[in-house]
C-alpha cells in the first residue's frame, strides 16, 4: 500500500489526539465503526457560545488512512459552526488525503463520526432545554 504524503503526515503527527469529558453538556461525542470490522473512531467536539466548535479531539483504532481521516476531520470542524461542520463530506476527505478506492470507507467513517458527534451534542442540548 503506497500512502500519500498527507496520510503519512497525519499518521506520524496526528492532530488533536485525546478525549473531552463526555458528560459535559457542551461536548458532543461520536463513536462509529466496530472492532471486528477493523476500525473504530471516536470524535468529540466542544461547542462554545454562538454554536461554534472550539475544540475537537479524536481517538481511532484503524489503519493509517482511518487515523489520517479522523485527524483531518478534527482539524476541519474546529472554528466551524454546527451547520458548517455538517456540510463536510467524505469526498472532501478523499480528495484532501488522496485516498485510494480501497480506503474510501475510512473517509465515510470520518464523516459518520462528525455527524454522530453533532447529533450527540444536539440531543444533549434538546434535553437541557426541554
Amino acid at each position: 500500500m503506497a500512502y500519500s504524503d498527507k496520510v503519512i503526515d497525519h499518521y506520524s503527527n496526528p492532530r488533536n489526539v485525546g478525549s473531552l469529558a463526555k458528560d459535559d453538556p457542551s461536548v458532543g461525542t461520536g463513536v462509529v465503526g466496530a472492532p471486528e470490522c477493523g476500525d473504530v473512531m471516536k470524535l468529540q467536539i466542544r461547542v462554545g457560545a454562538g454554536g461554534v466548535i472550539e475544540e475537537a479531539k479524536f481517538k481511532t483504532f484503524g489503519c493509517g488512512s482511518a487515523i489520517a481521516s479522523s485527524s483531518l476531520a478534527t482539524e476541519w470542524v474546529r472554528g466551524k459552526t454546527l451547520e458548517e461542520a455538517a456540510l463536510i463530506r467524505n469526498t472532501d476527505i478523499v480528495q484532501e488525503l488522496n485516498l485510494p478506492p480501497i480506503k474510501i470507507h475510512c473517509s465515510v467513517l470520518a464523516e459518520d463520526a462528525i455527524r454522530a458527534a453533532l447529533a450527540d451534542y444536539k440531543a444533549k442540548q434538546d434535553k437541557l432545554t426541554a
Partner: peptide, 11 residues
Amino acid sequence: AYVEGESLLMG
C-alpha cells in the same frame, strides 16, 4: 489487542 495491524506495520 486494540492496535490495528496495518497501522502497526506503517509505524
